[in-house]
């Protein structure tokens, strides 16, 4: 048996790595970076994240911890909109541009955004 404590600094638990998918890590890092830049305080963050978790629960989310970073992403989008950085329309425009970029990128190649993806 491998003793997890014998591996210094490995932040794993019995259920695997702390981030299950790269996007979870990106979303996590964005919140830390925006806080460091002063866009919001931790109490604001906790209140928004708490509200998003409650909202998801009310909508039937089992809230078992597996969907935690989805709530995290919702909270990020909401705070970014509330702070006037990007409204829902801007988010949707970039969302569609990335979707377009993915569609035209051959499978296996890195997906990159080009100006014409916005057209």
């Amino acid at each position: 048996m491998i003793d997890p404590a014998a591996v210094p600094g490995l932040p794993c638990d019995g259920e695997g790595p702390v981030f299950r998918e790269p996007w979870e890590a990106q979303a996590f890092a964005m919140a830390l970076a925006l806080h460091a830049r002063g866009l919001f305080t931790w109490p604001e963050w906790a209140a928004t994240l708490g509200a998003e978790i409650k909202r998801a629960q009310a909508a039937g989310d089992p809230d078992t911890g597996e969907t935690y970073y989805r709530h995290w992403l919702n909270a990020l989008e909401r705070l970014v909109a509330e702070k006037g950085v990007a409204d829902a329309k801007t988010l949707a425009r970039y969302y569609n541009a990335w979707d377009h970029a993915a569609d035209r990128t051959p499978h296996g190649a890195p997906i990159e955004l080009r100006p014409d993806d916005f057209e």
Binding site: A33, L73, E77, V80, Y94, Y95, W98
Partner: peptide
Amino acid sequence: ETQLRVRALETIL
């Protein structure tokens, strides 16, 4: 959908 949202947000920021 989630990956697109994260990429959109990161690009804007």
